[in-house]
Design a protein around this nucleic acid. Structure first.
Length: 398
DNA sequence: AAAACGGGGAC
DNA sequence: GTCCCAGTTTT
């Protein structure tokens, strides 16, 4: 590649961006906190999805201090539906670090920014360049795609080592004194022009020296190995309806502090073993009294929760990036299964009076469970899967 | 180096 | 259905 083509790229791309770019809420000013929040939200998430979340988050937590001092549930609630919830917890942990280490001021220093929770190589470069105009590369998926095409790079962008190489290249392209605009220009081009499927080369400001375009290979690049398909997991959930003092409420629980959907709230549920997964997969929802009974016994073993299913409620599929949940949901009440399984229609249905309370659970399990009404749902963070089921439940009730 | 970690939009 | 998105952390 000629030095001239490199200078052309930097010059023309920067000029293109400065002629006009998207009016995004985090471009209103250079407040490092706003840039930081926006960059965390934008990780693996589209601009259009982020915008309303960003506005709401900044309204609720306008400063580093406000975020650092907020209850964790409120921060997660503000992130509800956005996904990758560890981003929200890490962001708040980062805000606390900034309060304690730097007196609430995000420092104009790469190493200090890079150690913040949830801030990796990309976000470090984005904050340093956009907020402080420091000449650091900010290499995301857009940048890897744009540069792979312009320089006809054939390295697999799914490999970690490839990103490191492209960072060096991107750093060498930053025009003097224009790091922030140039890095954003690179991403903006990837988002609007040099798109994954069918890039719009004709309006592209750097088409003239794009090697992939000149070779007619713009749709073949970048090279990226395919992701593994998600594994299937069959799960059984219950909507436990309260009685007496808990009438009109349902039982929810908070997930563990680590792992998938950490610290989010959910309906009680369990992973089915191989045998019961097969039963799930092979028969119709309403013909599975045996499955329901077996699973409810497992729930008792699993969580010490004594319940009686009263009927089928819904089947729900939910696909994460690495797991595909297939979930069957039964309505239930608290009690012991000493009743009789109704033969009518084959639906799981136990008769008799409820005969258990949460007090029957082990204390350490019990502490994560809570009875909530529809109004209280608005204060606890639920992942989308359970949000939909609960909304569905309460709309049917009314 | 590979897997875990959400959810949705575009085709 | 597939791809992948302004990636980071853990294993």
């Amino acid at each position: 590649m000629q030095a001239e083509a490199r200078q052309y790229f930097s010059r023309e791309l920067l000029a293109w961006y400065q002629r006009g770019n998207r009016d995004l809420p985090w471009r209103k000013n250079k407040d490092p906190y706003r840039i930081w929040v926006s960059e965390i939200m934008l990780q693996q998430t589209r601009v259009d999805t982020v915008i309303p979340y960003f506005e709401r988050f900044m309204a609720n937590f306008p400063t580093v201090q406000a975020l650092a001092e907020a209850p964790e549930d409120e921060v997660l609630k503000c992130w509800e539906g956005l996904g990758y919830y560890s981003r929200a917890r890490n962001l708040q942990a980062g805000a606390k670090m900034v309060m304690e280490l730097y007196g609430g001021i995000i420092p104009d220093d790469k190493e200090s920014v890079a150690v913040l929770k949830g801030v990796g190589p990309y976000t470090t470069g984005a904050i340093m360049s956009i907020a402080f105009n420091r000449p650091e590369p900010a290499v995301d998926g857009n940048v890897m795609r744009v540069l792979s095409r312009y320089f006809c790079l054939e390295d697999d962008i799914a490999k970690p080592s490839t990103r490191v190489g492209i960072e060096k290249l991107a750093a060498s392209l930053i025009p003097e004194g224009a790091a922030g605009d140039f890095n954003q220009a690179l991403m903006e081009l990837g988002a609007l022009v040099c798109t994954p499927k069918s890039p719009s080369c004709l309006p592209c400001p750097v088409m003239e020296h794009c090697e992939a375009r000149m070779a007619g290979r713009e749709t073949e690049l970048p090279i990226k190995t395919k992701a593994k398909p998600p594994r299937q997991e069959y799960r059984l959930a219950v909507i436990v309806e309260g009685t007496a003092e808990h009438a009109g409420k349902v039982l929810v629980r908070q997930r563990p502090n680590t792992g998938l959907l950490a610290q989010m709230w959910e309906l009680p549920h369990l992973l089915l073993d191989g045998k019961h997964s097969g039963m799930f997969a092979e028969s119709a929802p309403k013909e599975q009294g045996e499955l329901a009974e077996a699973a409810i016994r497992m729930l008792e073993t699993d969580a010490g929760l004594l319940i009686r299913p009263t009927g089928w409620f819904a089947d729900a599929d939910h696909i994460f990036s690495h797991i595909h949940w297939r979930m069957r949901v039964y309505a239930a009440d608290l009690g012991v299964m000493d009743g009789v399984l109704a033969a009518e229609s084959g639906a799981p249905y136990w008769t008799g009076e409820p005969a258990a309370t949460l007090e029957d659970m082990p204390a350490e399990e019990r502490s994560r469970y809570r009875w909530i009404g529809r109004d209280e749902m608005d204060r606890l963070p639920f992942p989308n899967l359970f949000l939909k089921l609960l909304n569905d439940y309460w709309s049917r009730k009314s």
